[in-house]
Amino acid sequence: MPEPGLRGKLRLGYIVLGALIAIKIAEYLVGTTIPNGVWPFLTILALVGAWPILYYFMHINQLWHPKSRHDE
């Protein structure tokens, strides 16, 4: 993290949300403009969209770094 502390965390949140919204828009464009055969792209986009939530919001890496206290 470039900026430590609460401010850094909050900024990170905005960045993650921005990325998520961008993915959603891409998804939406793919889904509404291309008539068929889109499911592989959508699957990839959904996976790409799920990862930031799992990683940055849900702190999945705490599972393999069990000693961390909360999200410090």
Partner: peptide, 11 residues
Amino acid sequence: VFIFPTLYLVS
């Protein structure tokens, strides 16, 4: 995130 494209976007 997975339900939305499956219901609304696939074709």
